[in-house]
């Protein structure tokens, strides 16, 4: 009730979720605990995204610091046309862009990347499929993918496996990394990612598709090698 009153008093658009509205009201009252919960929620993901934008850890930390300052300065003006989360990440992308321009470094933004510009990369190596002229099963699996649900869970969740995945993500193009980081590592929804990165729904999906396909491929290679090693014992 109180949150609703605060929102109405501040003249916010009614689309703001109640949780955001309550948090916003508390922040405007200067409640430290509200800011702490904001930091706990968004600082780590902000830093992760900033690193993709600017490359270096030190600059990324700077940009995130500037972002928080921008959040504090903008609280009074925030109109609730987007969620608090999207608004905060928009501030980050803007600061990162400014920073990049100042340093004469071009920053890879998904918004500027049209996936069609890149050469088509098949999700799976073409040689994994039977040729087009196969009399029975053209373009079907030449050898079936391994069933990962039959692998011991301990192997899938091993530290080494996670390191392999982390590395695979780092090898992706920056726009693929931005999208897969927000979608699959941070667990954002597609509309949230589109809004924060200013990409169209279909571009977002193409980038996600390429990113996931590549990570799966690296993981498949790694798990197959691990299997061979075990068999050889």
């Amino acid at each position: 009730m109180a949150a609703k009153d605060a929102r109405v008093a501040a003249g916010e658009a009614a689309i703001l979720p109640d949780e955001d509205a309550a948090l916003l009201a508390a922040l405007r009252r200067g409640e430290e605990s509200a800011f702490v919960s904001l930091i706990e929620r968004y600082h780590a993901p902000l830093l992760r995204l900033a690193q993709i934008f600017v490359g270096s850890q030190a600059v990324a930390e700077d940009v995130v610091q500037e972002t928080w300052l921008g959040v504090l300065q903008g609280l009074g003006r925030f109109e609730g046309r987007s969620s608090l989360k999207t608004w905060i990440f928009r501030i980050l992308t803007n600061r990162a862009k400014t920073r990049g321009q100042r340093e004469g470094r071009s920053i890879p933004f998904s918004a500027l990347a049209t996936p069609g510009d890149e050469a088509f990369e098949p999700a799976v190596e073409p040689e994994r499929f039977l040729p087009a002229d196969d009399p029975h099963w053209p373009h079907h699996w030449a050898s079936l993918p391994q069933r990962w649900d039959e692998l011991p869970e301990a192997r899938l969740l091993a530290k080494e496996t996670r390191a392999v995945i982390q590395q695979a993500v780092e090898q992706l193009t920056p726009s693929q990394r931005e999208v897969i980081t927000l979608r699959d590592i941070e667990g954002w929804t597609a509309p949230e990612v589109c809004e924060a990165l200013e990409v169209s729904e279909s571009n977002q999906r193409v980038l996600l598709h390429r990113a996931r396909s590549k990570v799966r491929r690296v993981l498949e290679q790694y798990l197959a090698v691990a299997e061979d090693r075990d068999d050889g014992r």
Partner: peptide, 20 residues
């Protein structure tokens, strides 16, 4: 099996989040 691999990949990516 391929779909299952993709699902596992997504689930494993989710374990990389470090929110500290």
């Amino acid at each position: 099996a391929y779909l299952e691999q993709i699902r596992q990949t997504i689930a494993l990516l989710g374990t990389l989040a470090d929110s500290s």
